[in-house]
Amino acid sequence: MKVFILTVLAFLLGIDNVSTKMFRRPLLIAPIVGIILGNLQAGLIIGATLEVMWMGIGDVGAYMAPDIITGTMISTSLAIMGNTSGNISTMVATAITLAVPTSILAQQLLVLIETINCSLNGWAKRLADNADVKGTFWLTWPPAFLYGFACAFPTFLALQFGAGAIQQAINDLPKFIINGLSTAGSIIPSVGIALLMMTMLKKGELWMFIILGFVLSSYLKLDILPITLIALVFAFLYERATREPSAKAQVSPSTQLNNSSSDEEDDEEDYDL
């Protein structure tokens, strides 16, 4: 029964991923899986770990990223179903190990659908020839079903036939491998963070904001929310300080004000002006 509910959920999430995009992150999916399987805590921790791990992942242009929806569904469900002992760190280790291969396999299905979708062009052309606006309504239904199926089918197969195998594997594997994977779970998020850094570090001087955020968190032990608010202030100052000279004269008095008020900004002025 739980497998059936999860399969239906996967079907809906598969469609949401390519349309409204409201639930397309691990942290939003894994807790729902956790609630369905009666272990919300595990769902939350797994979701948060996968969220950070896949943080910089997203399809850019025509490049198709690993299917994190199916990956999250399968890995979270199997990790919770396969661990009867209730040890959350083992569950997280299992989930991370499963998330990577499942999301890459499921990605191939999405590529297949986008190839099948080419046939929509002919259909749309015929509708356009006949000026059939009402008919265009149906264009999205067949591919929507395909996308839902592409997420639901692997989930069903994995849950129906995989849970036992996972449980067996966890029991049989040497303890150091499970421990190692569990440790890996707290190191692998560095990949997601590094991917983000790649897209965001457009200039060398921007490194200092990484340092600032790191210091506020590691030495001063601030939470993410206060750091975001402090970051807003620095973002405002940095933007003022580096604004293009063409953007009118009214900038100069405020820039000078910044000069006296912040040491961080002084450094950047040296590079920029």
Binding site: V52, P189, S190, I193, L196, M197, M200, L201, K202, L206, F209, I210, I211, L212, G213, F214, V215, L216, S217, L222, I224, I227, T228, I230, A231, L232, F234, A235, F236, Y238, E239
Partner: peptide, 14 residues
């Protein structure tokens, strides 16, 4: 500005 905020959050996440 979004870029700067994002980078500081990334630094904190590390």
């Amino acid at each position: 500005m979004a870029n700067v905020v994002g980078l500081m959050v990334v630094g904190a996440l590390i």
